[in-house]
Simulated assay, not measured.
Amino acid sequence: MTATELVVDGVTLTAGAHRLVEDVSLTARPGEVVGLVGPNGSGKSSLLRAVYRVLRPAAGRVDVDGADAWSLPVRRLARTVAAVVQDSGADFDLSVREVVAMGRTPHKRLLDGDTPEDAELIDAALDAVDATGLAHRPFDRLSGGERQRVLIARALAQQPSLLVLDEPTNHLDIRHQLDVLGTLRKLPATVLVALHDLNLAAYYCDRLYVLRDGGVTASGPPAEVLTPRLLSDVYGVASEITVHPRTGAPQVTFLPDGPRPAAADDRVA
């Protein structure tokens, strides 16, 4: 697996007369973890769909190692790019291991069976998301968090050089959020990930792109991007930004508007 460079150049996406994303450019250099952050409706999911070739740009290009992603043969694209999407609706009548094994399909010819190497990669992917114990369970009987981990394992088994994830920590408990994002940081791949949790984004991402109303409003290392003024402008909230004493990453604390409601013991009788 060799990391890929992703270049999104002036991409505009539309749905009928509505513009979802307008003139967005970003770069994810080989081996980087690049985060997309921004409020709901800012265009994060739409932009990711253009990268993994579900939503065709009305203007601009998506280049993968210098080649137009929308011109690549489907099989070559599937060997290069893997996606984990929100609410995929997948309801496979398969075991967990069989679902993860689907990640090996782009590397096989029709009717090829699993090789010992495939089996090792499937085992490693299950282990990476703490799903080894789920391997023989029916996928359609899993909880939302368990399904999410299995779909991430399927993407890992695909061995992409570019991994695109839309809110991969949704439905996951804190431990598995940290495990999954820690795994992404260790991959010999380029990662583009949309995240809601700004503290997770600050710790695990090399660079952030902040989207608002379908455009990029700021980009750069988390320590430069995450400021009280930006969070006020983009999210409409007050915040304090400190440096975490152990990790050195920016730490965002949101402040409620107005005075804090008095606790029962503080109220005047």
Rank of each mutant, 00 (worst) to 15 (best):
L6F: 02
V8F: 07
T12R: 08
T14A: 15
A15K: 05
D23C: 12
V24C: 00
R29H: 13
G31T: 06
V33E: 06
L36G: 00
G41C: 02
S45V: 10
S46W: 03
A58M: 09
V64P: 01
D65G: 02
A67W: 12
D68Q: 07
D68S: 06
D68L: 07
S71Y: 10
S71N: 11
S71L: 13
P73Q: 12
R79M: 02
V85I: 10
Q86F: 11
D91E: 12
F92N: 09
R104D: 05
H107D: 01
T115Y: 04
D118P: 07
L126F: 14
V129D: 10
T132Y: 12
L142E: 11
L142K: 08
S143I: 08
E146C: 12
Q159N: 10
Q159V: 11
S161L: 08
L163S: 03
P168H: 02
I174F: 14
R175L: 13
H176I: 00
G182H: 01
G182M: 08
T183L: 05
T183E: 12
L184I: 01
A201Q: 06
A202W: 04
C205K: 01
C205R: 02
D213A: 15
G214H: 08
S219Q: 14
P221A: 15
S239Y: 00
I241Y: 01
T242S: 13
P245D: 01
R246K: 11
G248S: 06
T253P: 09
P256Y: 07
A263S: 12
D265G: 14
